[in-house]
Each structure stands twice: as C-alpha cells, then as structure tokens.
Design a protein around this nucleic acid. Structure first.
Lengths: 329, 329
DNA sequence: TATCAGCACTCATGGATAAGCAGTGCTAAA
DNA sequence: TTTAGCACTGCTTATCCATGAGTGCTGATA
C-alpha cells in the first residue's frame, strides 16, 4: 500500500499538474509538506517505482502516470459542490421550462464545454420503447407527400415521400388511414414489420396502385430510428497544451469528425464512468468521462473528452449536476 | 499588359504550386518553355515587379501572389469537364429520387469535401415565401403538446409546448382549430403577427384559459424561422501543408465553430464567386468559392473553403455541376 | 530510523556557428 | 534576345556550447 504522506504527495502532484501542465518538482511541495525536497524526492522515487508517477526525462520533475490518475480518481479525489459561477451558468438553461429536455441536455453540454475547455459529446437515440402515437400524411403536390410520425413521448420524425406515377389522392388517403389504424401503438422499431406483414397484404387487396404506394411508405418509415450526434467545442480541447502539435490536432479532429468513432463512445452503464488514456478506445492521450441517461423515451450518452490532465473533481461535479437534473424531469 | 510567354509562365507556376505546394524555380519550367532558366528568371522578375508573383525569401523560387491567383482565375483558367471519377461519385447522390433536395445538397457537399480535401459549407434558410400549409397539435400528456407546422414546400417544423396549468382539452382543440383557420396560407414569417392581431383577440373572447394557451403557442411559433449550418470536412482543409502549425489550425477550427462567422459566409449573388485571401473576410490564408441557391422555397449558400493554393478549375467544375443539378429540380 | 544538506550528474532549451544547397540577379558574350 | 557563368543569399540541418532546473545518492545529524 501507500502511506498517508505518499498519498498526499500524489494528490499534490496530480492537482498541481492539472493546473499548470508542467512536471512537478520536489521543491514545489516543500511548503505544503513541511519537509525538505530531499525527503520528498525519496517518496517520489517510491511512487515512481510502484508506477503512480512518471518522469518526462531523467532529470525532470514528476508527472502522474495513467495508474496515478486512476489512483487519484478512485481513492483521493473528493466530491465537490458546484461552484457558484458554474451553477449560475447552468441553472438558467436547466430551469428553462420552454426547452425540451433534449435541448436542455444539448445546451448544458455546450456550456460545460465552454466552462471546462474540454469537448463534450451528446449521443441520443430514440428508445425502442417509443410507441407511435400518430401518423400524418400531408400532400404537397401531385408527386410529393410529407409523412410525419409522432411518438407517445412527443418525438416527431418526418420524411418526404416521392411518388413517381400519378396516384389517386383517394388511394393515398385509404392507405394512410390503414397505416394509422394498424401502426398506432406499435413501437417505433417494429414499424417496418407491421408494414410488411399487416399493411402490405391488406392494401394489396383494397388499393389499386398498392405497389408504388407501399414502396414509397416503406422507404419513408424504414430509417426513422435515427440517432443523433452532437459534438461541442472541439476547439476547446485543442487549446490544451498537450495538443500542441499539428499532427496530434489533426488526429483528434479526424476522430471527432468520424461518426463511427464518436458513436462508439456510447456508454451502457448508468453511473458516471471515467476512462483514462488507454482505458478508452478513442485516444490514449485523452480521458473520457461519460454516463448514460434515459428520459422520456430518449436514451443516450453524455460524455466529456479532455486531456488526461483533467480537472476530475470539477468535471464529475458538473456531470452529476446535469444527470440529476435530467433524471428529475 | 503581359506577354504570351509571361502568361504561360504564370499559368505554369500557379498550376505547379497548386500541385506541389512548393515555390517554383526557374529551372523547373525550362522544359515546358524550351528556353534557359536565365530567360525565365528575367520574366519571373518582371512578373514579380508587377505583383503577380512573390518570393518566400530572397533566393527562393516563386509563388503566386493573391493578385497572381486573381489573374489566373480571371484570365487563364479554362472551364473543364467533370472528370469521370468525380462524376461517378456525385451522380449516385444527385440522381437519388428518394432524397429531398436539401439532403442532396448536403450529401453532395460532403462528397465534394472528400474529393477535393477542402472544407464545404452549406447555409440554408427557409425562404420567407414559404406558406403555412397545415398546423397539427398532438397531445402527449396533460402538460405537453407537440405542435407541427408543414409548409407548402414540404418543410416540417415541430416544437414542444408546455402548458403549466391543467387546461381542458376542448379549449385546446378550439384554439388549434382557430389557429388552423387563420394561419394556413400565411407566410411563415408573418405567423407571429397573425397570432397576435387575429388569433389573440378571438380566443380572448371564446376560450377560457386563453392567456396560458396563447403564450404557449406564441412561444412555440415564434422562432420557427430556423436557419441551418452544416460544415463538412473541417479536417480536410487542415491536412493541407499550409496549415502545418498548431496555432493556425486552432484559429481555423475556432472560426468554423463560430456560428456567426460561418453565417457571414452567406452569398447574395447568384453566380459562382471566388474570394481569394484578403478578398474574403473569413481568413486571409484561404480562398472561399461560393454561390447562392434557391429551390423549393429554400434559399441558401454552398461554399467551399480551401487554401489559396486551390485547384480552382476542378472546384469550379464541381460547384457548377451541383448548381446545375439543384436548379433543375 | 527518518530527515536533510550537499554534490555530481542529466537533459531540455536556446543561441551561435558553420557547411551544404537550392535558388536568385547580374553580366558579358553569342 | 538569349544564355552560360558566377557571385551571392538565406533556408536548412547539424554540431557545439552554456545555462538551469531538476534528479539520485551519500554521509552527517537529531
């Protein structure tokens, strides 16, 4: 294990390094520990031996290792209260009645990105629990319709439908009525099944131009289960001194622009989880803190991406605040 | 003016520099011009004197100046045909019947970003000519409604409405019917006027909880006139060798993330316009090529942002192709 | 036994100097 | 008008300091 003083040294080093982004020397800690630098050096040496600290070169000060951050996060860091300033900025968003919950999440994460200078990510997905509440089809002109689906949780999806031949409006209405009858109440991801096995056979009987119509509607409804990705403040993380070279920046930007990579950040666990460096599979030089949320038939992940040298206490506090406020709704 | 050979030299230098991103030496051009490097140096000297070329240092090769690019674009460059490869990639998108025009534009510009390694921007805005075609209000639970507005051009906007007090569903229905009656056919940006001067007085008479309802609907309809911004392939422009330092990259990224700055790229002119370096007010180190489009009651700008050392001929050809295909629809 | 002053050592950083080289401008001859 | 030849310039790269901030180790001390 590790002595009290050693833990204190680790804490001081992590926190100093978080603040100043420079290797921490033994001398820096003399005051705080009321002892000489030599003593501290001996302790640092031990902490390096057991893998909690690292040097950038043989005569440099110490920097926390991945394991060091992990120890700090697991054993040292203490829960904080939201600072007055942070609170102030977030509260106006969180308490805004006229915003949909979804927008509250997006806005809050934007603000958190600004506050922390890290990058935030919101991954949203309509839960499969969403049930179709209403289907509307509105004619635009002779070839185009707009189909609108509203779920029981208030989600709206819409899509243009192009119908090549001239189809009798009555036929369209018949089809829509049928769809409405059969589809309302089914979950959003079983819509295409219902279309195929229930709607198709019936309209084949009663609707003249059923093939054209069926295909049009089938295409329209097929990819309704859309997922959303929102990355805020890419620039913020790039301002961090660890990303001070063009190639590293390009690498990070490329990752943030790659949908698949960003999507893979999705969190399945309900707690606030911390993935330091190689613990995440996004990039070894960053820490990702994320949590799953689930409200109103919308489930998703909120995540914060920053350097490993991240202000863990503050970030956790911020995410906690958001999570609590989301879950209340 | 400028002699034939001088023009040819300028052309060769611009095109070589576009390709290789390195100052062009007199020797490089010997073959193409069938003369000695000394002769070419003399000509280069003159071209520099009149401001079409520049040196990076006193004994370096030549690089086109902003004025040089401008001359190239105005007088030398020739219209090209779309290359088979480019055509192939774009056609599948452009000809896809099941995509809304808007999505075709977005997708095409994404692909152009990939093809050219520059960044593309699409700014969209619902034209004020859009007329309200239908208003639907769908109850979700006792406190929440969803309002949906469809325009005559097939645009759909929706918004959640929160109603604090318990309001009788009948009252809501009354209000919605009234809104539908009065609002259909008005242009989307005069909706709030109609609400205030026509709807408000009437529901004040006939609807009991009219204040709550009116406020809720007014808020919901008020900011429907949304604008959209889509930036594709930020990473692409950053790969260009001129953006090889961290601070420059950060500067560019910050600009692309700033809504106001990106919005100011909006083009009012209908042609394809080229803004080289200081001619645009985005960044002196880039060229922006943009054009306005207007279809289906949706107007907007498509733009391409690249280094001044841009493959002008190809880019113009690509944008032309998109523009023609959009306008056809 | 823990602490610490002192010292040798290491390495990053930044400035100075020099060699190599890819270019240019100029000149005098064809 | 063109061009071969040459002096010159300045970027690039490497090498070599001096400096300074840090370490590890050792032997003395409380």
């Amino acid at each position: 294990m590790i002595s009290n003083r050693q833990e204190k040294i680790l804490k001081l080093i992590v926190e100093d390094y978080i603040k100043n982004a420079r290797p921490v020397s033994s001398k820096t800690l003399c005051n705080a520990l009321m002892c000489s630098s030599a003593t501290i050096r001996a302790e640092m040496n031990y902490l390096e031996e057991i893998g909690l600290l690292e040097k950038t070169h043989i005569s440099s000060g110490r920097v926390p290792s991945e394991k060091g951050y992990r120890y700090y996060v697991d054993n040292i860091m203490e829960p904080q209260k939201l600072s007055g300033e942070d609170m102030l900025k977030l509260q106006t968003i969180v308490d805004n009645k006229s915003l949909v919950v979804n927008d509250i999440i997006l806005k809050s994460m934007e603000i958190i990105s600004e506050l922390t200078h890290y990058t935030t990510i919101v991954l949203g997905k309509h839960s499969s629990e969403n049930l179709v509440q209403k289907v509307e089809v509105i004619p635009i002109d002779s070839n185009n319709l707009v189909a609108i689906v509203v779920t029981d949780k208030g989600h709206v999806e819409h899509k243009s439908i192009y119908i090549s031949d001239n189809v009798d409006p009555d036929e369209i209405k018949k089809t829509v009525d049928l769809i409405n009858k059969l589809i309302v109440g089914t979950s959003i991801d079983s819509v295409s099944e219902v279309l195929e096995y229930q709607v198709k056979p019936i309209i084949a009987k009663y609707v003249r131009q059923h093939e054209v119509l069926y295909n049009a509607f089938y295409n329209a409804f097929n990819d309704f289960a859309s997922e959303s990705i929102k990355v805020s403040g890419t620039k913020n993380i790039l301002m961090q001194p660890e990303f001070n070279n063009a190639d590293k920046i390009r690498e990070i930007i490329s990752k943030f622009e790659d949908k698949d990579i960003v999507e893979s950040i999705k969190e399945e666990d309900n707690g606030i989880n911390i993935y330091i460096g190689s613990e995440n599979n996004f990039d070894d030089d960053v820490t990702i803190i994320k949590t799953k949320y689930m409200i109103n038939g919308e489930e998703g992940t909120i995540a914060l991406v920053g350097p490993k040298r991240m202000d863990y206490e503050r970030v956790i506090t911020l995410l906690n605040y958001i999570k609590e406020n989301i879950d209340e709704k």
